[in-house]
């Protein structure tokens, strides 16, 4: 059944070379844990991506119930967590995944650092990786405000005061981030937009660049 549908499409569009080019390539021995167990360190990049996919999916589903409004945000999160079937699981995936993605990214960065993979010709991919790192921090920072509980509110206040300490431009940065003079209604809508539209879009673009470069340059050689 699947084969017939696939063949029908393939006859018309010749799709085999497309996915072959993306998926069908050899895993060098030095990155294959079946050959050298210590090669498991090469898994952290893929694990980071796996958790990112989970974040995006669980986030999309959370958005079915969540409202970015100071009166209702807290109650909508409380409702989706306590009244909706599997709400605790789906919110849990997003909540714990947000921390785990940082851990995986850190381990991946350590692997790249200690295998020297950032060296020529892969310097650009290190820079893109750093941009991904900052986008992730931004997602964590903006997402943390969304439940609009005390922890969320004061964490964001602290973040705003830190922004405020930047010489000269600090107060302006703070007001721009807050969308006003206080952490309030406009901060919440702004953080929501950044969290679910702007940063995920930037993240996907950077991940695309990251993977295209890896495909072009191949994985770095053995130590």
């Amino acid at each position: 059944m699947f084969k017939t549908v696939y063949n029908w499409i393939d006859e018309r569009l010749d799709i085999t070379p497309m996915w072959r080019d993306v998926a069908d390539h050899e895993v060098p021995e030095h990155v294959n844990p079946a050959h050298h167990f210590s090669a498991f360190v090469y898994c952290f990049g893929g694990l980071t991506f796996f958790i990112t996919v989970i974040q995006i999916l669980s986030g999309m589903f959370l958005t079915m119930y969540y409202v970015p409004d100071i009166i209702n945000a807290y109650y909508s999160v409380e409702y989706l967590q306590t009244k909706v079937a599997f709400g605790q699981i789906v919110r849990g995936m997003h909540h714990w995944g947000a921390s785990l993605v940082i851990v995986m990214m850190f381990l991946h960065t350590l692997r790249v650092f200690f295998t020297g993979s950032y060296k020529a010709p892969r310097e650009m991919n290190w820079v893109v990786g750093m941009l991904i790192f900052f986008i992730m921090l931004g997602l964590g920072f903006t997402g943390y405000l969304l439940p609009w509980d005390n922890k969320a509110y004061f964490a964001t206040k602290v973040g705003m005061e830190i922004a405020d300490t930047v010489p000269y431009i600090g107060p302006y940065v703070k007001e721009l981030l807050q969308g006003g003079e206080i952490v309030g209604a406009q901060t919440l809508t702004r953080f929501f937009a950044i969290h679910v539209f702007f940063l995920p879009a930037a993240l996907l673009a950077m991940l695309g660049a990251h993977f295209i470069m890896i495909r072009r340059q191949g994985i770095s050689g053995p130590l």
Partner: peptide, 15 residues
């Protein structure tokens, strides 16, 4: 394991 909780979560209003 990842998809089923999310789908059940989404259709909850029906049930």
């Amino acid at each position: 394991g990842a998809a089923l909780p999310m789908v059940r979560f989404a259709v909850d209003p029906l049930l």
